[in-house]
Structures are given as C-alpha cells and as structure tokens.
C-alpha cells in the first residue's frame, strides 16, 4: 500500500520515468485552464500522498540516497530535453517537470513538507500562467509553435512580454519565488550534492535562450493579430511584480 502510494506520488509529482504519465495527462487536457489547474493541483496532490503514506519514515538511508540521485537525474534529463522544445506548452511541461523533480530531492533530504509544498508552488504557478499564455497564442495563431513566424514581439508585444517575464519566473531568475525556493532547497542539501545540480541552471538558461530567440527575433511573417488586452497584461505584470515584493520582504534567505 505504502509503495503504491509512493509510485502514484511519482506520477503526480513528476519523477522519471513515471513523469511520462504526468506529461501525458497534461497533454491530453483540453485548453489552457484545465492544464493550468492540473499543473498546480497534481504536484500538491502528490505531496499529500507522500504525507499520507508516511513513506518518509520507512525509507532506509541508502534508498534515500538512490532516490535523491534519481531525482537529480530526472531533473537534468527534463532540462536537457527542454532545450529543443519549440512549442510553448511542451516547453513549459518539460521545464515544470525538471523543476518539480527537485521537490523530491528537497523532500528526501529532510526538508519540511510545507517547504517542499512552497517549492513546488514556486514552479507550478508560473507554469500555469505559461499554459494560459500558450492557449492565448494558440487562439491567435492556431498553435503555440515558436520560430515559424519570427519576431512575435512586433505582432503581439504584450503577449510576448508576458511570456518572457513568466518564463523568467519559471526558470528561477533571481527575485522570482523559484530562485529563493531553489536556494532554500540547496540549503537542505549536503554540499557534495551541489556540483551535481550545477548544470541545471545552465540547461535552463540554454532552454530560455532558445525560447526567446524563437519568440522575439527576426521579421514577423504572417497576418496581423489582436494582441492581449491591456488589463490582462497589466494583471500578469502586477502578479509577477507582487511576487518580487513578496521575496524582497518575506522570502529571503538566512544562513
């Protein structure tokens, strides 16, 4: 029973290869809102399952070690795969899976469950927003595949700016919650683990660079499109700005 719950948790809080189920589930959902809600709820449900199963007390130290190594591998694998994703939805899924695999690492290294929940949320909220923006892009272009039309920032300046800022928030750019969540989870890890995780920000940076290259640069080729409303983009900006202030005054880091 305990192990079944653990395996189910590995689907909901994605850990390779069971993360395949998580990604498949997200792909099969219709539209942006169901995907956005799922990416917030499923990982939290996975963490609740872990709490309910009390698996943390039964795991021998060696299993913890192997589990942690596997979580690092899973995170690196998804980050590595994200560098060639050009569809906004796929890109978001892969990077969310990469970030959420680290929640396993934090949990296995003994971080309190509440900390792990906040950690997961720090990645899930921008991912959810990206799913909504991908849906908005699909409504305008028939798909959210970047790089075909080039220079979307000219045709859809507000939507592009929202995509850029939300992508930065997802990838742990400093001042956004994911950065501090990452720092706090590093704080629970033995130092010897840190070099293993170091390629991760590099791969995330690479994935972002390619994402922005496809989104922002080049001459736009296509019909004129209606941009996102001023109020919507202002709301997104306000949300991201509020998350910055939360970090400045409440989510800092101490030794």
């Amino acid at each position: 029973m305990v192990w079944s719950l653990g395996l189910l948790a590995a689907i909901l809080l994605p850990l390779f290869p069971l993360s395949w189920g998580f990604n498949r589930l997200l792909t099969s959902l219709p539209g942006g809102w169901p995907q956005a809600l799922a990416v917030i709820i499923l990982p939290q449900a996975g963490l609740e399952l872990l709490r309910f199963s009390h698996i943390a007390h039964t795991l021998p130290p060696l299993w913890r070690l192997y589990g942690s190594l596997w979580a690092v591998f899973s995170s690196l694998l998804y980050a590595f795969r994200a560098i060639t994703a050009r569809e906004v939805g796929i890109w978001t899924r892969l990077l969310a899976s990469s970030g959420l695999a680290l929640a396993w690492l934090a949990w296995l290294s003994g971080a309190p469950l509440a900390t792990v929940q906040v950690f997961a949320l720090a990645f899930c909220l921008p991912a959810a927003l990206l799913f909504l923006l991908a849906a908005a892009l699909t409504r305008r272009m028939g798909g959210a595949y970047l790089g075909l039309r080039g220079g979307l920032v000219v045709a859809l300046p507000r939507l592009s700016a929202s995509l850029v800022m939300t992508a930065l928030a997802l990838l742990g750019t400093p001042l956004f919650p994911a950065f501090f969540a990452l720092w706090r989870s590093f704080g629970h890890l033995p130092l010897a683990w840190v070099p293993l995780l170091m390629p991760l920000p590099l791969l995330w940076g690479w994935a972002t660079g390619r994402f922005f290259q496809d989104l922002l640069y080049g001459d736009f080729r296509g019909e004129p499109m209606t941009d996102m409303g001023r109020m919507t983009s202002a709301l997104i900006g306000l949300m991201l700005f509020a998350s910055l202030f939360l970090n400045l005054f409440g989510g800092g880091f101490s030794a």
Binding site: G151, V153, G205, G209, R210, F212, Q213, L216, Y217, D219
Partner: peptide, 21 residues
C-alpha cells in the same frame, strides 16, 4: 538584443547570457 529585427543580435546576446550563466 535590443534590435529584434536582427536574429544575429539575439544569437550573440544568447552567447553572452549562456557564458554569464
């Protein structure tokens, strides 16, 4: 990468960003 019309500007900005990272 201020000049979005030039893909080269974005490419070189990316090189800089990844080296900085």
């Amino acid at each position: 990468g201020h000049d979005h019309r030039r893909p080269a500007a974005g490419r070189y900005a990316f090189w800089t960003q990844i080296t900085y990272r």
